[in-house]
Every structure is written in structure tokens, then in C-alpha cells.
Amino acid sequence: MIQVATASPFTSPDSPLGPHRQLRRNLNFYDLQPPATNMLSEVTRSLTAAQPSLHPKFFYDSEGSRLFDAITRTPEYYPTRTESAILDSHAEDIRQHLGRCHTIAEPGAGSCEKVRLLLERWAPEQYMPLEISRACLLEASQRLAAEFPGVNISAVCADYCQALALPQNGQQPGRVVFFPGSTIGNFDPTERAAFLRGLHHLAGPGGALLIGADLQKDTERLNAAYNDSQGLTAAFNLNALHHLNRELDCHFDVSQMRHLAFYNPQLNRIEMHLECLADQQLLLGQHTCCLPAGTRIHTESSYKFTVEGFSKELCDAGFQPLGCWTDPDKLFSLHLAAT
């Protein structure tokens, strides 16, 4: 467990995570200086590949974040509200499987909204949100620190690689790593296996993982969830191109692109693409690139699981499954596993 400073606003470099700022009595901010990525280089490489693609992170400028929040409230998009209902119904049962929860760590914490129920019900000593966006992390952690004065918050600005390599808790009990939202489904199988091993390291000896996994279901329902009647998911997907035009001046003609999302039963995943309705002449720095009409840019995958299959993946990563909770319709699952 990371110890909270009580005297100086800065700790010594001997702290497990290095120097940090004490922003409130119960809030310390650690900046691990996540490495900046070369956006132009990354986008050029992915768009000129044999199968053009864009990383899902390009969805999330301010407009993309607003759109995603709206998507989670649509009638068709079940994962967010279903997972929240499972947590609300079973938080005490999950805590009993865990025993006393000392520290909750949440990689990719974002706005820290989903953890609120656990902070209220479990009253952990420590909460460690890990997030690459400094502004988002500072705003969310300041708000939580004011609302939960009894919880010591160690906010860590880091990318996933840094987060999953954090020091162990030493003699302190292991962490409960919270990874909700079925974000694990955005990783391809090889990446997912490596990521789960990283979560095992982050939890540490005597730790645990509480993770959401979306379940396989009828294709019609899956397709509807990613093609909502209000067109919000389409706007969210297309917004990645507006983002690139603004940041890199790529010259995408967004009016000549369309959103495609469909379930691939062979790979058990939803795929999101952007299809060129006309030739796209792109400017990528000093270079040009043509994407012919009909080209599909793969923007996201969302794998769907079975309870048994995902439990096996947890075992393969070194975890011992402790329990699994689902909704009555078996749409979504929450898995608890020990290290």
C-alpha cells in the first residue's frame, strides 16, 4: 500500500512511486510522466497498413467522450447499466468473498464513476486510480477526495505499461484491481493474455481482480447495441476522423465515410469500421495517401465471452476464480479472482 504523506506537500524520491504532490489531506498525485506518442507517425503507420485501422483512443476527444456517455444511456446499449446493476445487487456478496478490502486499484479509471459504489459499500483504506490523462485524473480524484474523506487516494498518471509494472505492496495486503466495463474485450487474444498477466502483477500476492466481461448472446441484440437508433454510435465512430482532421489536418471528407458495426461469429467479436464511400485523398504530414472507395478502416473490436471461457483465461494468467455474477438475462458478467 502506498503511504500517504502528512507533513510536506512533496515526498522524497524513496517513495514507492517516486515524488508526489499532496493536493489534499487524503489525496496524493503521482506523475509517472507517461511517454508521449507521435500521433502522426502512429496514424500514418496504421492507415497505410494492408488492413487500415485506427486505435480506439482516437475516439476520445471532448466530443467523443460526450458521445460515449450518451451512448451508454441509449435503450440498445446494455453493458453499462447491466454491469452497474450487478455491482449494486452483489457488492456485499463480492466483499464477503474478498474479506477486508484495503486497497482498490483501477487502471484506466477515467472519470472514476464506476468505483463510487465500491467506495461507499466497502470503505477501503486506499483507492488508486491510474489514468493517462492528467486533466481527467486531477479533476476526478479531487472530486472523489472531497466526497470520500475517509479514503486515502493515490492518483497515478501513467500509461497501461507503467501501471501494470508498479511496485508490489511489500508487506501490505495485495490490491483489489477493478477493471470494469468489458474493456478487456477490446484486446485481441494475445494482447489480452499479456494484459491479464499484467493485472495479476498489479494485484500482487494476496490480491484479487474484479473484472467485467460482456457475454455472447443473440446477434440481433449485439448488432443493435452498436447501431443505436439515434445514430450516436455512428457519430462516435466518425468523430475519430473529425479528431484527426483537427489535430493532423488529414483532409478526411467525413461526409463520404460511413459507420459499420457488426458481429463476427467466427471471432466472437463486434467489429467497428469506417467505410470509404468515395476515394479519400489524405494528407499525412508531408506525405499523401489514397484510400479507395470501399476501403474499411477497422476502429475497434469488442470480444464477447462465455463465463467458462473467460474463467479459463483468468486461470491461464495465474488467477484463481472465486466467483462470477451475472444479470438475470445473462447479458454481462463480473468475475472475481485471486492471485
Results as ranks from 00 to 15, higher is better:
A213Y: 11
Q172F: 09
C112Y: 04
F10V: 04
S255V: 05
D31I: 01
T72F: 00
G174K: 14
V176W: 04
E271A: 04
L202Q: 08
N152S: 14
Q280D: 11
V254D: 09
R95H: 15
H242N: 15
L138D: 13
E300I: 10
I86V: 15
G206Y: 05
G185R: 12
E125H: 14
L210Y: 03
K304I: 13
A163Y: 08
S311N: 08
V177H: 12
A337Q: 13
N264K: 05
T219S: 15
G204R: 12
C290R: 14
P16C: 10
S302R: 10
R66K: 13
R296T: 12
P265N: 01
G108L: 06
F148V: 03
L138A: 12
A193F: 01
I132Q: 09
A135E: 15
S89D: 15
L215Y: 06
H335P: 11
Y77P: 04
R296L: 04
V4S: 07
Q172E: 12
S229V: 06
Y77C: 07
L283T: 12
L267K: 12
S255K: 15
H287I: 02
G185I: 09
S154V: 04
E313H: 05
M39D: 10
M128F: 02
K217S: 11
L232F: 03
A146T: 11
I211E: 10
S229K: 11
Q22E: 10
C157Q: 15
Q142Y: 04
A208D: 03
K57M: 06
F59I: 01
F319K: 08
G99D: 09
Q281G: 00
A5Y: 01
I104D: 06
T103F: 10
L144M: 07
E131D: 12
G198D: 02
A235E: 14
L244A: 02
R25V: 08
S53V: 00
Y60H: 06
F252Y: 11
L32N: 08
A155M: 08
A208R: 13
E113R: 15
C161T: 12
K57E: 05
C136E: 06
A317G: 09
V156A: 11
F59Q: 07
V151L: 03
R45D: 05
E76Q: 14
L232R: 01
S15T: 03
P79A: 00
C112A: 12
A85L: 10
G212C: 09
V176S: 05
L209Q: 11
R116M: 04
H259K: 08
C157V: 14
S301P: 00
V43T: 10
N28W: 04
T74C: 05
A70I: 01
A203V: 04
A163K: 06
G150L: 05
L54P: 05
F58K: 02
D327I: 12
T190E: 15
I94K: 10
K114E: 00
P129A: 04
A234G: 15
Q266R: 14
A203H: 12
L166C: 12
L119W: 10
Q22Y: 04
L199V: 07
R45P: 00
T74N: 03
E76W: 00
N169A: 15
E131T: 09
T306D: 13
W325I: 05
L210M: 06
L164I: 13
S311Q: 14
Q172M: 08
C290E: 10
A36G: 06
T44G: 14
T11Y: 02
N152E: 13
